[in-house]
Amino acid sequence: MSNSKNDFALVCESIGMQFGGLAAVSNFNLQVHQGALYGLIGPNGAGKTTVFNIVSGVLRPTAGSVRLFGVDTTGLGPDEIARRGIARTFQNIRLFRNLTVLENVLVGHHVRRKATLGEALLSLPRYRKEESDMMCNATGLLQDVGLDHVANYRASALPYGQQRRLEIARALATKPKVLLLDEPAAGMNPAETERLMQLILDVRDRFNLTIFLIEHEMKVVMNICERMTVLDHGQIIAEGTPSEIQSNEKVIKAYLGGGAIARH
C-alpha cells in the first residue's frame, strides 16, 4: 500500500533540462510523500530553481516526466499546474508591486473563482458571496503570516522579509496541495529565519500541505526537512535524512569547496 505511486504527492522521473549545450539538470529523480517537508539543497547554480521551474510548468523538461498525485503534468502551463494544486514562491521575489498587500493575496484566490465575468460586472449574488469569502480568507491568511496590519500598503512598500512572507500567503491563497518555496530564507537574519521556519511548519500542518523547499545553506533546512536531495552541477549527489546527508562524503566535498575544485 505505502509503495503505491499514488501515495506520493510529487514524483519526478529522470528529468533532464538542457539549455543549449548546458545540462542544467540531468537524470533527476524525486519522490515526495504526501504531507512531507522535503528539501532540495545544493550550491548556487546547481540547478535547483530549474527543477522548480519544471515542476511548476515554467519550463518544459527536455527529458523525463513530472507526476502530481499520480497524474502526469509534464508540459502543462503554469496556470494549469497552479489550478491542479501546486503553488510556488520565487527566489527573486515576484510580487505584484503596485497592488496592495491584500490584493496580492486576492489574486491568488482568483484561480478558485466560480463567478463568471458577467456575474462580476453585474455584481450578482454568487459573485458578491465569493468576493466576500475571498476577502475573509485573504484577511485570515494575512493574519497567519503576520501582515494584517499592512494589508492596504502597496506590496512594493514592504520591507524584504515581509515581502517574502507575503509571497507565501499569496501562494497559499491558491489553495495548493503542494507548496514550492525557492530559498524562502534568503537574505534573512537568523532570528527571521527561525520565525520563518516555524511559519512553514505551522502552515504545513494547518493546510495539510506537502512542502518542497529549496535552500542553498544547508544549516537552515537541517532542522525542519524530513528528507532531502542534494544537487550539484545538475546531478543528484545524495538523498536521505538530514543526518545521512550531513555525514555524506560527497556532500561535504561539494559544500566545503571541494565542489569548486571539481569545477574543473
Binding site: 503554469p78 489550478r83 508591486r97 491558491t174
Partner: peptide
C-alpha cells in the same frame, strides 16, 4: 497582476 508580473500571475493560476 498581469501588468505587474506576468510570470508570477501565471504561477498563481
Amino acid at each position: 497582476a498581469i501588468r505587474d508580473d506576468e510570470i508570477a500571475a501565471e504561477a498563481m493560476g
